[in-house]
Write a protein that binds this DNA or RNA. Structure first.
Length: 471
RNA sequence: GGCGCGGUAGCCAAGUGGUAAGGCAGAGGUCUGCAAAACCUUUAUUCGGCGGUUCGAUCCCGCCCCGCGCCUCCA
């Protein structure tokens, strides 16, 4: 079966191909850098990372733009409170965001686009809209006239006919002619940062950022536009209105939206105060790859309830896969190659691929891997897994880890390794213990075991010999 | 009020018109000098409730109950 995604625009599962060049032109909404982002935000970014990796696995090249919103009301307020310039303030949290993303092993998009570095593109976009009479100004601010875009609501599948002008309060204190209208350019106020343009001093509205930057990097029609479900309305709806009013062409072919991370059955959000940042969890001692696994393991269109039990289960799941990897790589094996094992390995990869092609069903993909692990463990027990089958198992794990990326120990594990004995020291301890056991000096053998244990090294006596791993 | 999503074992969770993947936890076992670790086996006559369609429904339809989201900044 071909690669399929659920398209929010059509509400259907659709076969995906990029429009040209075998290159996927993709835009995703990135962070607003007014604070540390929380792990709910990172669920979406992890989904986007899985999407990137799977598209590449399927042979596509990527041209992916992610914006960084580095000017908006909250940022201005927080920077003022911290008595820092906008640039200094956002630099700090932009840096923190990419550090966190790297810890979660999220690939960096081909282009990272800070809003403040693309003001000319936004000005140009607004001028094009003005030339077509899609805008009006009021008290120094420029607005988009929603009444002039007949398809408004097609993404969020809302019928806006019933909403009357003035039905809602203008929360951002700008005067609008119609309740649905949104601001393209906010007029200069007080000491706020501003840019000078033909239509007045001020700063960009949020929605125009994404339209202008997406089209300047990727052209008039994107292959994929992705983000969290809460952006469907109004943000993405507004992006469509702006972009399609300018070009007269579809803005994005596929709209992909990831569901929220919940905590105690509620949306995790800054305003509710019920959030954890990645840094919070790392300080509690959780490994970044465990968090990555948890975020990736539930299919992206399903709400994911965050719990510490879930985090512990994720850690154990990774441990099982790592144990398997170690066993398949290090066990003493009979020579030769078992054809049945090779076939079982190929089947596992096929199942894994089919699950991901089906709108990135990561849960089903994981099931394929775990079923494979059990089958091969049994084959190992029965001496059916042979020397040349090692490559088969390695290949399955390579495909798995190319997407999930959780098998290699993270940097914090490496940090804990400081003061640990080297591999060769461990090997000589193990050898000494084996000798002691052979001469039935169990006291010495147990002493060595305890010594290594105190340094974080766990010995495993198995049928295939002695293995060790870091705790 | 409008629009939408979801309710599957103790927890997380996949799935299909023909009788329930996987992970964690639990139980039993294998291995072992002992132990740990690891591995294996096992764990839902049942898929929120009530009706309907069907030879047959967890999966389709209707109603109800419960949870959640969007409609305002928000991943």
């Amino acid at each position: 079966m071909a690669l399929r995604f659920f398209n929010t625009l059509t509400q259907e599962l659709e076969v995906f191909h990029p429009q040209k060049d075998n290159t996927v032109r993709m835009y995703t909404c990135g962070p607003t850098v007014y604070n540390y982002v929380h792990i709910g935000n990172f669920r979406t970014f992890t989904f986007q990372d899985i999407l990137r990796r799977w598209l590449r696995y399927r042979g596509y090249k990527l041209d992916h733009v992610m914006n960084v919103t580095d000017v908006d009301d909250k940022i201005i307020a927080n920077a003022a409170k911290a008595q820092k310039s906008l640039a200094d303030y956002t630099r700090e949290f932009t840096k923190a965001f990419f550090e966190d993303a790297a810890a979660l092993r999220l690939e960096k998009p081909e282009h990272v686009a800070p809003a403040t570095e693309h003001i000319p593109e936004m000005v140009e976009a607004i001028q094009k809209l003005a030339a077509k009479n899609y805008t009006y100004t009021n008290d120094g601010s420029t607005y988009f006239r929603i009444g002039s875009f007949s398809q408004y609501g097609k993404l969020s599948h809302n019928d806006f006919a019933g909403i009357r002008s003035g039905a809602r309060v203008d929360v951002d204190e700008y005067d609008k002619a119609d309740a649905r209208d949104f601001v393209l350019w906010k007029g200069r106020k007080g000491n706020e940062p501003f840019w000078t343009t033909p239509f007045g001093d001020g700063r960009p509205g949020w929605h125009i950022e994404c339209s202008a930057m997406a089209m300047s990097y990727l052209g008039e029609t994107l292959d994929i536009h992705a983000g969290g479900v809460d952006l469907i309305f109004p943000h993405h709806e507004n992006e469509i209105a702006q972009s399609e009013s300018i070009t007269g062409k579809p803005f994005a072919r596929f709209w992909l939206h990831s569901e929220h991370l919940h905590i105690e059955s509620q949306k995790m959000s800054k305003s509710l105060g019920n959030f954890y940042t990645l840094r919070d969890l790392l300080e509690m001692g959780y490994q970044p790859e465990v968090i990555r696994y948890l975020l990736a393991s539930v299919p992206y269109r399903k709400k994911l309830n965050f719990t510490f039990d879930g985090l512990k289960a994720a850690a154990k799941s990774i441990e099982r896969l790592r144990d398997f990897e170690l066993r398949a790589a290090s066990a003493k094996l009979p020579p030769g190659r078992n054809e049945a094992v090779s076939e079982r390995s190929a089947a596992a990869i096929r199942q894994f691929e089919e699950a991901l092609d089906d709108d990135l069903n990561t849960a089903e993909a994981l099931a394929a891997v775990f079923e494979y692990v059990r089958a091969i463990n049994s084959a190992l027990d029965e001496q059916q897994f042979q020397e040349e089958n090692r490559w088969d198992a390695a290949r399955v794990l390579e495909v798995f880890d190319g997407l999930f990326d959780v098998l290699k120990p993270g940097p914090s594990t490496a940090a804990a390794a400081n003061g640990m004995p080297s591999d060769s020291e461990i090997a000589s301890y193990i050898e000494e213990r084996q000798q002691a056991k052979k001469s039935r000096d169990f006291a010495r053998a147990d002493q060595i075991r305890a010594l290594l244990d105190s340094k974080g090294i766990l010995l495993e006596d198995t049928k295939e010999g002695v293995r060790w791993k870091r705790k």
